[in-house]
Amino acid sequence: MELIVKKRIKQVLKGDQNAFGEIVELYKDKVIHVCYRMLGNRHEAEDISQEAFIRAYINIHTFDVDRKFSTWLYRIATNLCIDRIRKKKPDYYLDAEVTGTEGLTMYSQIQADGRLPEEEVESMELQDSIQQEIVKLPDKYRSVIVLRYIEELSLKEISEILYLPLGTVKTRIHRGREALRKQLRTM
């Protein structure tokens, strides 16, 4: 996959915008999935994913072709998610409180402001609950857990994506796992 991508990047650099469309096709599901797990909201995930691809396009000349494209792209997407989480923090805490009350989930709250019908169908209760617990994690733990267990990236890749030393990534994964363990224990 990386080889095709490199070829397409060269075409994009030569001014062929359509070649970028193929790159989007190859990575769109992965990027939107990471964003969804980070943000817990499908519309936001789509919004941020679009933004990530647009930034990738605009900055494509800064991409070092000797590196892995997916790592670079995930870095852009993850950083955008973290920015978004920080900006909406007051809301997020409010939602987190709501989830503590019986029968009311963050999702049932959000539903009112427009979830897609297919999304409601596919969201099984357990999956929703797990997602809620992931979203409750502080963002520094959330990003490593999402990249490690949902994207199944290696510790080294995560350290490259987040520009963090390997030791820091390990510590955050350990703490993130412990936090989730406590949250998911009763589930």
């Binding site: 599901d29 596919e122 797990i130 992931i134 267990y149 949902i150």
Partner: peptide
Amino acid sequence: LVQSTSHI
């Protein structure tokens, strides 16, 4: 559990 979440 984390890995059981389906892909979007």
